[in-house]
Design a protein around this nucleic acid. Structure first.
Lengths: 243, 243
DNA sequence: CCCAATTAGTGTCTCTAGGATACTATCCTT
DNA sequence: AAGGATAGTATCCTAGAGACACTAATTGGG
């Protein structure tokens, strides 16, 4: 009776060690590599988490990393799973689904704030690592008391998670455009040019929007309010579906 | 009285020619470069739209492209704007906002299906090119008859557009995992391993989900139904906000 | 009519990244 | 102590973005 042969990438994701104790002992392990890569990405963005830089930060040559991670793509998958496990208190509690799902979304947003590069990742499939599953599980648990079937539940969790990621992207994009005086001057020129280019005859609604003072107050705490607006909107939608 | 000096990237986005007719006439222009890049990305993905390959497809050296696009990053921005302008019939019509916004979302989804690489792009700010503005304008116009203020309108348009993009990503991710027999075998092993790894004690809800037959029917037309489910959910949410 | 300014496209170089392959170093087991 | 197994290294290759100095093809002015 053979055990099912777990694919090697899955084994690494779940940190299933091969139990061998022969040969030269390792200085590195999957966690060391992944943690170093996450530290680099947290500091300087996903593009900074290159194999040479990760190796250097570990005091090792880049090729040695391949003993532990298989490929760059797999490293990114490992990083994505390892970064920001779900907080324990998401599992407990037993309030109404709307509150719990909202709290789950906030926790997700918090994770994306701590690890901004997560918003750059492309999801290639269902969650398959321990932390990905844990987040997914927590999302499903938040909706336990709703009357929805599995299908709608899964879709709802995905919609909320997509929303959070989209907002994180947007916030990061806006935050990126906050530099010195040159930046401000450039933005002014940009704004003026845009006002001239968005012809009211061609783009009546967009022109009316730009002419309004909607974009006047882009303060710091509007971000939180914007986030809540969309989240409430989606939760209203869920409530409508759940009857 | 000077005209406002339009930043050069904006000038290229809006195809404002510099009106000069001196010197050697150009074989290339911005559109030629951008169209070639889009063709490559449509065929083989965003990663295939490299400067060398674009240059080769135009019968020119890669450095000549810099006469027309400034940088790779700018080329991508130009591609994003140029790909798939909004269909004309989105502008006409005067139905209820819910139908119009739904139609707008479907049109967006259609665009992402024609140009899958658009789903890989990171939005770095508000739309600024002619087609980006046109899509945005069409989205706002769809909501004209709603009673929402500009702020909620803008956020709603963004939420819907984010949703469409998220679903496109997901659909593409699933579609990518449809290969030959090896693929099927790998997926089977994967599924078995996952079933063993997702321990019901640790992940009760996720385990219950995987144990159900929710993922049994992943047929082709479920995709469209899934899309509609989320879209209706969001539109319900908008309706709730619009009272 | 020709020359000089102007603009288009080229050739060559550098830097950085991911990764293949063959190697050496180090340890455990027998 | 020997030898097999595993960890980490040295050296190579490919590919992409882009800097820089070059040549080529125009046109407008003297």
């Amino acid at each position: 009776m053979d055990e099912a042969p777990v694919p090697v990438e899955l084994a690494r994701l779940w940190r299933i060690s091969s139990e061998t104790r022969r040969g030269r002992p390792a200085r590195l392990d999957v966690d060391a590599v992944v943690d170093a890569a996450i530290a680099l990405a947290d500091r300087d963005g996903l593009a900074a988490a290159t194999l040479p830089k990760v190796a250097e930060s570990l005091g090792v040559t880049k090729m040695s990393l391949y003993r532990h991670v298989g490929s760059k793509e797999e490293l990114v998958a490992l990083m994505a799973d390892a970064a920001g496990p779900p907080p324990a208190d998401l599992r407990e509690g037993d309030g109404p689904w709307r509150e719990r799902l909202g709290a789950w979304a906030e926790a997700l947003a918090d994770r994306l704030e701590r690890h901004p590069w997560l918003a750059d990742l492309r999801v290639t499939g269902p969650p398959s690592g321990p932390n990905g599953i844990a987040w997914f599980d927590a999302g499903l648990r938040a909706m336990r008391r709703s009357r929805l079937d599995w299908g709608p539940k899964v879709r709802t969790v995905m919609i909320v998670s997509d929303y959070v990621q989209g907002m994180a992207r947007l916030a990061q994009g806006l935050a990126a455009g906050r530099g010195g005086a040159d930046q401000a001057a450039a933005e002014l020129a940009y704004g003026k040019a845009m006002a001239a280019l968005v012809d009211p005859a061609r783009f009546p609604d967009a022109a009316a929007l730009f002419a309004s003072d909607t974009f006047a107050d882009t303060g710091a705490d509007t971000a939180e309010a914007d986030f809540r607006f969309g989240l409430d909107l989606i939760l209203d939608g869920v409530a409508a579906q759940a009857d």
